[in-house]
Design a protein around this nucleic acid. Structure first.
Length: 575
DNA sequence: GAACACAGCG
DNA sequence: ACGCTGTGTTCT
């Protein structure tokens, strides 16, 4: 592959001449600390390696102009985009070969090395990746290495694009997007995932502001509490209450409790088990210590990642096999509700917190096409109450709190493939005692009424029996393969939820740009979007966010309406 | 360092 | 029960 090393204004001129007319180009970067050293740009035949240490300001200006109206193709572009955004460089559209490989699901690791091996049969030498990219004069080997990644991405692009387009799902609304037009991409899930790479890059750059004073106060308070309680407990019982093994033996041998076994044969001491023995003050003490300890752990996790009053979590765009994102360092998707108040809007700003109500049940009824449930949603009914009235043969207004709770379990059970035994156990944890037989009757009644769910479950069971797997697509066309019944009923629903959230964020971003407003997404939690914006724009941004979510809802769900609930607050609390 | 138990969220 | 991640203990 031909490459040239560009270190001057004249060099950039010839890059402009060569690439200026392209609608998309192949891109990679090599970075040193928080700076970009090289930006490699290529077309089908040639690679230009632009040295930003040599071309400094005018190099950056050049890239802003060049990429502003172009698509870029790269591998793991979130990484490159975060650097480019910091320089004010923003490509018009994005195609990521790593995401493409993840969507195709043919391999389970997606480094450029692995993807190139699988789709091209190429062996890549990565030994120069960690070489010194900060040295004044780069070696010939380093430049060749820098050019090679771009060549590999180019070869992969055409193959992956074809493979993604080879699926049948189409969605007119999405075919009109930048991503689709620039790359000729027609697969709707790929269209949203490619565009979403830019959203994740921005999300990671935004971070979330933390009330550090409050955080530190709470840590001090909880640490004192835990230390004292653990000391007391050990003095009295000569057992470490934080050790499940010691605790299991102690509770069985000294207190005479009959505890169930875990899968591996250990004595189970989890909260669910212990909560049945709360009449015992020692057990109560253990539960109290744990309750404080788990909060303390979470606070310390957050604190360890604070940098000038914010945390900057990493988000994995396709973190779960269903297509959901995951979050880490710190994980901001599992913050206990009572601690969310330590996250706040930055000075002069507010947070807008919007979520979809009962979204999985809505998606499930759309997915299976259950006429009765769809009608109930259209009529704006309280679904759990409605189900209870059906199951118990009562009027909706006569359904009690516990009865509604039981129906909630049944409704969720549909999505998770619950058994009669599972339902009976679940009900017990809510203080409702029903036998396995009764649970079976309730289940039967549910399926008799919501017939499409029965057909669905039977179809899935048949597929599993016959083929050992159940394959299918989410509402937007995301592929999945499941090997167990619970997976097979859960994946399409959870996956459709992921489709919906991602599309919502994209539509919000598009609207924000169109209106020339400033607002940024600071957290995403499966069915919830948290946005930060100036106080005096809060109303406008909130309306826009709700409209975007509802619009996305209409695209993903053709028959079932979605409902969105929003709160504006200076902290991450729904009050 | 891996495996397990536990616990938080949707 | 389905999907995740983090912490701590225990074992190899």
């Amino acid at each position: 592959m031909k490459y040239s090393y560009v270190t001057s204004r004249e060099g950039l001129k010839s890059v402009e001449k060569r690439l200026g007319g392209e609608s998309y180009i192949f891109l990679d970067t090599e970075t040193v600390g928080d700076k970009i050293r090289l930006v490699q740009l290529g077309d089908r035949e040639e690679v230009f390696i632009i040295d930003l240490f040599e071309t400094v300001n005018y190099g950056v200006e050049f890239l802003k102009d060049l990429l502003g109206d172009k698509g870029v193709v790269g591998h793991n572009l979130k990484y490159d985009l975060k650097f480019l955004y910091r320089y004010g460089i923003e490509p018009y559209a994005v195609f990521d070969t790593m995401i493409a490989s993840q969507l195709l699901g043919e391999i389970d690791r997606h480094s450029l090395q692995k993807v190139a091996m699988h789709y091209l049969g190429e062996v890549m030498d990565k030994s120069l990746q960690l070489s010194n990219w900060g040295r004044t004069t780069l070696s010939r080997e380093q430049l060749e290495y820098a050019a090679l990644d771009v060549k590999m991405v180019k070869d992969l692009f055409y193959i992956l694009l074809d493979r993604l387009n080879a699926t049948s799902h189409q969605e007119e609304t999405l075919i009109k997007t930048r991503t689709s037009k620039v790359f000729g991409l027609k697969n709707p899930v790929a269209i949203i995932e490619m565009a979403f790479v830019q959203e994740v890059a921005k999300l990671e750059l935004s971070g979330i502001c933390v009330d550090v004073h409050k955080l530190e106060d709470l840590i001090r308070e909880y640490r004192r509490k835990v230390q004292k309680s653990v000391m007391d407990f050990m003095m009295h019982n000569r057992v470490d209450p934080m050790s499940p093994k010691q605790l299991g033996e102690f509770l069985t041998n000294k207190l005479g409790l009959v505890l169930p076994k875990t899968e591996k044969g250990n004595i189970s001491t989890d909260d669910k088990v212990l909560s049945q023995f709360t009449y015992h003050p020692t057990v109560q003490k253990i539960l109290e210590i744990r309750a404080v300890k788990k909060l303390l752990d979470k606070l310390e996790e957050i604190k360890s990642f604070v940098k000038d009053d914010s945390v900057y979590p990493e988000f994995r765009q396709i973190g779960a096999i269903t297509g959901r994102m995951s979050s880490l360092n710190p994980n901001v998707q599992n913050i206990p509700k009572e601690l969310r108040g330590i996250f706040k809007a930055r000075e002069g700003k507010v947070l807008i917190i919007s979520d979809f109500s009962q979204i999985e049940l809505r998606l499930a009824s759309e997915y299976v096409g259950d006429e009765r449930m769809i009608r109930a949603f259209k009529e704006g009914r309280d679904l759990h109450r409605y189900t209870a009235s059906v199951l118990l043969g009562k009027r909706e207004e006569d359904v009690g709190k516990e009865e509604r709770q039981l129906s909630k379990a049944v409704n969720f059970g549909l999505i998770y493939g619950i058994s009669a035994r599972g339902l009976s156990e679940y009900a017990r944890s809510y203080g409702i005692n029903i036998s396995v037989d009764d649970a079976q009757k309730i289940r039967d009644k549910f399926f008799e009424y919501f017939k499409s769910f029965k057909d669905w479950h039977e179809r899935v069971k048949r597929e599993l029996k016959e083929f050992g797997e159940s394959r299918g697509y989410t509402l937007l066309g995301r592929r999945y393969v499941a090997h167990t019944f619970p997976d097979a009923v859960n994946y399409p629903i959870q996956g459709s939820g992921a489709d919906l959230l991602k599309l919502s964020v994209l539509m919000f971003d598009a609207e924000i740009r169109k209106e020339g407003l400033k607002a940024r997404v600071v957290n995403l939690v499966h069915d919830e979007i948290v946005v930060e914006c100036e106080k005096d724009k809060a109303e406008e941004v909130k309306d826009l966010l709700e409209r975007a979510m509802k619009h996305a809802g209409k695209i993903i769900l053709k028959r079932v309406p979605v409902e969105v609930e929003s709160v504006t607050n200076d902290r991450w609390l729904k009050e």
